Amino acid sequence: MTGPLAFLLVAVGGGVGAAARFVVADAIRARRTTALPWGTVTVNAVGSLVIGVVAGLVLTVGADGGGLESWRLLLATGLCGGFTTFSTATVEAVTQLRGGRPGRALATTAANLLLSLAAVALGLGIVLLLA
């Protein structure tokens, strides 16, 4: 799908995702006092889980099957694209490095990468198991 409808689906999903990321990450940051940025790690893992589920549905049903292409654009590209944030995770790790905390920077990077990969695999696995 291309054109104005695809653009609108991605734009709406992205706007909602970015606003949701702000609320969720900020709420987690306000409650946690640990050295790692768990708000960013959480939104990246949750968004990756949703992307894994959507990808699993596309793999099992096909992108055009049952109107999944619209849902893929809205949820995976738009919502999760706005919700997850590789750039913020990178800035947080670099800030920790510049602050003389290389261990925290490595832990932040590892948590984002490993939890996000595991979440995508879990989402895919759930859908493929149920298919």
Rank of each mutant, 00 (worst) to 15 (best):
L106A: 15
L130S: 14
F83E: 05
A131Q: 07
L106C: 05
N112D: 14
V24T: 11
F7S: 13
T108W: 00
L73I: 01
A6R: 14
S70D: 12
A118W: 02
L117H: 05
L117Q: 08
I28K: 11
T84I: 01
A11H: 05
V120Y: 08
F86W: 15
S116C: 11
P102E: 09
A30M: 09
S70V: 00
T40Y: 07
Q96N: 04
C80K: 02
G78I: 00
V58K: 10
V61A: 12
L73E: 06
T108K: 00
V24A: 12
G66D: 09
V91D: 10
N44W: 04
L8F: 14
A6L: 03
R101G: 02
L115H: 03
F7D: 13
L122N: 05
I126T: 11
D26S: 15
E92I: 00
I28M: 05
N44M: 02
L113A: 13
L114W: 06
T85L: 05
G82W: 00
T60I: 03
I51K: 09
V12R: 10
L49D: 03
L128D: 12
L130G: 04
V120K: 10
P37E: 14
T42Y: 04
V16E: 08
E69G: 11
Q96C: 02
E92F: 02
F83Q: 03
G15Q: 09
A89P: 01
V43A: 05
G52M: 06
G82E: 04
F7P: 00
A18I: 01
R104Y: 07
T34H: 09
S87M: 08
G52D: 06
G123E: 04
R98M: 05
R104S: 14
A121I: 06
A19S: 12
G82F: 01
R101Y: 03
R29S: 14
T85I: 01
V58R: 11
T2D: 14
V120G: 04
G3Q: 11
T42R: 07
P102S: 07
P4K: 05
A119I: 01
R98I: 01
L59Q: 14
L115T: 15
S70Y: 13
G13L: 02
T85P: 02
F83Y: 15
R98Q: 15
G123N: 08
A93V: 01
T42F: 14
A105N: 09
P102D: 07
R72F: 10
F83P: 00
R31H: 12
A105M: 08
L73M: 14
A55L: 15
Q96G: 09
T109M: 13
G82Y: 01
G81D: 10
A20F: 11
F83T: 00
G3R: 10
G14A: 09
L106F: 13
